[in-house]
């Protein structure tokens, strides 16, 4: 005779729930995470600077081709002390952010249309993927002829760089939704718009965010290309123009400082803005494979 306790279904069920639930992973202490994730890139950076210093000390190349790390550092300090750095950074970053946000507003409905409307996909789907492999710097000459040397040219190039990435990311995200989810949505009573808002968009979010990340990278590098090529006092002094200035004066420390700043902004925005969003989105879905 089984005991009455075991006969009680709720007890059995509780036991099963406890046994079958996936084990929750414990969070590791902060310093260990720091050691594991931040230390390797720091060590790599230190090594890189050490090799650079050694190459400079060996004097393989003349000074104007390979300056000392310290020479670049003092140029950076000079830029920071005169406050010019803020002007340069502001000019470029506010353009990139504005361009990126505009691209977001254009690309999101565009991506939805391409993903959900067969004719639209057939018509512009290939074009959208093709545009991704066309370096947007190729548009600079045309844009200068169309719009002249002003902000319109810059934004045009930035948009052509980032809109395809964001739209394609959204399309990929929607294509990868398990077909059962929209079906379930239908049986739960979701109409076309409710399904888009409550099921399609949240389900496509991981792909969409990957597209946003790439879209940001593309808009940043398109901007740099545009600033580097389109030279005019009307355009203000952005990072690209600053880089060009260094090149014109054969001033290698300025050139390297500009390149490092461009890298720093690109990586910084990715790490400070997109990485946390991506982590949060993946974590709630249990997609922690890439995060450990």
């Amino acid at each position: 005779m089984p005991s009455p306790d075991v006969q009680d279904l709720s007890k059995v069920e509780e036991g099963l729930d406890a046994l079958d639930s996936p084990a929750t992973t414990r969070t590791e202490p902060g310093w260990r995470r720091f050691v594991r994730s931040a230390l390797p890139p720091l060590v790599a950076l230190v090594l890189l600077v050490a090799v650079w210093q050694a190459l400079w000390a060996a004097a393989f190349w003349p000074e104007f081709q390979l300056p000392a790390p310290l020479a670049v550092w003092s140029r950076f300090e000079e830029l920071a002390e005169t406050g010019r750095i803020w002007e340069v950074l502001w000019t470029s970053i506010h353009r990139a952010v504005l361009g990126f946000l505009t691209a977001l507003v254009i690309a999101t409905p565009l991506g939805l249309l391409v993903a959900k409307v067969r004719v639209v996909r057939a018509a512009i789907g290939p074009l959208l993927s093709g545009l991704q492999s066309l370096p947007s710097v190729a548009w600079v000459p045309a844009a200068i002829l169309w719009f002249g040397l002003n902000d319109a040219t810059i934004y045009f190039v930035v948009l052509l760089g980032s809109v395809p990435s964001i739209a394609n990311g959204l399309v990929a995200g929607i294509d990868q939704i398990p077909p059962i989810l929209p079906r379930v949505g239908k049986t739960l009573g979701a109409g076309r718009f409710a399904a888009a808002r409550h099921i399609l968009l949240p389900a496509a979010l991981p792909g969409y965010i990957a597209g946003l990340k790439q879209g940001w990278a593309f808009s940043w590098r398109s901007l740099m290309a545009a600033e580097l090529i389109a030279q005019s006092p009307d355009l203000g002094l952005g990072l690209g123009a600053y880089l060009n200035e260094g090149s014109n004066f054969n001033d290698m420390p300025t050139v390297i400082t500009a390149i490092l700043l461009i890298l720093l902004v690109g990586i910084g925005i990715d790490l400070l803005v997109f990485r946390p969003i991506e982590r949060a989105v993946l974590r709630t879905r249990g997609l922690t494979g890439a995060l450990t």
Binding site: P178, I180, L181, R183, V184, T187, L188, G189, A190, A194, H198, I199, P202, A203, L205, V281, T284, R285, G286
Partner: peptide
């Protein structure tokens, strides 16, 4: 009323908690 359906897979929305999954059809209604 509109029939409710259960499939072989639970097909829960992976971005919603259990409670919010149950909440979804109520919201839609």
């Amino acid at each position: 009323s509109r029939p409710a359906v259960m499939f072989q897979e639970a097909a829960l929305m992976p971005w919603l908690t259990a409670a919010r999954n149950i909440d979804l059809p109520l919201r839609l209604a």
